[in-house]
């Protein structure tokens, strides 16, 4: 068994990092909304799902059906990420406007917002299965069938670690995800918009008194969180080349787990939680079999929360400095 672990350690690490960074990007959306509104946006899983379809739209419209190289490849990847961001951010902002803000205005309880989120989630899934996929992607009566992306990127071995090849697409996923997280970190910690977000997270009433427009801060939070989910959707699609209307479900649960694991409300916690979850899942699968992945990840979550109830990094967006 330890022999297995040594043999599969490096490939599992690479896969864990790549998948963990996708978890982390989605987890950012949960964590930001929680930090500002104290609300778990359970429809965020669908924001991710719509991101994958937004990204899918680019090669679909361009009619790409073979692998690209060089500048064309870079261009298509950038377009896919932008389209994913646009679709996801748009969805997230619309969700806030339609499903949350009316409730917030009327002072409804957080439970009401939770139910509203679950309703919005089911609505969006069925919207895609019944209307968007059959019509926009020209797949009549196949709305619930997985949709494959033609391979746009050759599976080139970039370099190898201990004899195990690392593929170009895995490097692209990790680099793009880390890049987006650095941009986000700068945005929240170094700009006026970010200051507004942090102020609202610390004390909404004081923030209003200081002239922060809460509605626009909340909208901004959903916009940024949605955008990150869109990047995750595009990167997922490039690496795994398939999606379906239901794909957000498992990703949503896992990314939410990652957010809690890292410390919900903490941006860097989302990164730590996502990558930890990705790695633990893959290492655990070596010992117990791949079907035990979910059991392992939730056992780890319970263990961490038993000893650190606020997650690995603990500190929330409210107290975030710098």
């Amino acid at each position: 068994m330890f022999n297995d672990f040594i043999n599969q350690f490096w490939p599992s690490t690479v896969d864990g990092l790549a998948f963990g960074s996708i978890y982390a990007l989605i987890a950012l959306g949960y964590t930001m909304v929680y930090g500002v509104l104290r609300l778990i946006n359970f429809a965020h899983s669908e924001v991710f799902m719509i991101g994958t379809f937004g990204a899918m739209f680019v090669p679909f419209v361009l009619g790409i059906n073979s692998a690209l190289t060089g500048l064309a490849l870079v261009g298509v990847i950038v377009l896919m990420i932008l389209a994913g961001m646009l679709a996801s951010a748009g969805t997230a902002v619309a969700l806030e406007r339609i499903a949350y803000r009316p409730l917030r205005r009327r002072g409804a309880s957080r439970l009401a917002a939770l139910i509203s989120a679950i309703g919005a989630s089911i609505f969006l899934q069925e919207l895609f299965a019944l209307i968007v996929i059959p019509n926009v992607f020209d797949r009549p009566q196949q709305g619930r069938i997985q949709m494959a992306l033609p391979q746009i990127m050759e599976r080139t071995d970039l370099f190898s670690i201990a004899g195990h090849p690392v593929k170009l697409h895995q490097v692209v996923v990790v680099v793009a995800a880390v890049g987006m997280m650095i941009v986000l970190d700068r945005l929240v910690n170094g700009t006026k918009i970010g200051r507004g977000i942090r102020a609202t997270a610390q004390n909404p009433e004081a923030a209003v008194l200081m002239g922060v427009n809460i509605d626009s801060v909340v909208r901004m939070t959903f916009l940024i969180g949605g955008g990150m989910a869109g990047v995750a959707g595009a990167l997922y699609l490039i690496a795994y080349e398939n999606t379906n209307y239901y794909i957000g479900f498992l990703f949503g649960i896992k990314a939410f787990t990652a957010a809690v694991l890292g410390g919900i409300g903490n941006l860097r916690g989302a990164l730590v939680g996502g990558v930890t979850l990705g790695l633990v899942e893959n290492y655990g699968a070596i010992f117990f079999g791949s079907d035990w992945k979910h059991v392992i990840s939730f056992t780890i979550l319970v263990l961490v929360l038993m000893f650190r109830p606020t997650g690995i990094l603990g500190e929330s967006l409210q107290q975030a400095r710098a």
Binding site: D4, Q8, P11, S12, D15, I247, L250, E281, A285, S290
Partner: peptide, 14 residues
């Protein structure tokens, strides 16, 4: 494997 998942890299590694 769990067919609801889309990442089978741990299976592929094995």
């Amino acid at each position: 494997l769990d067919p609801a998942e889309s990442d089978f890299s741990s299976v592929a590694n094995k």
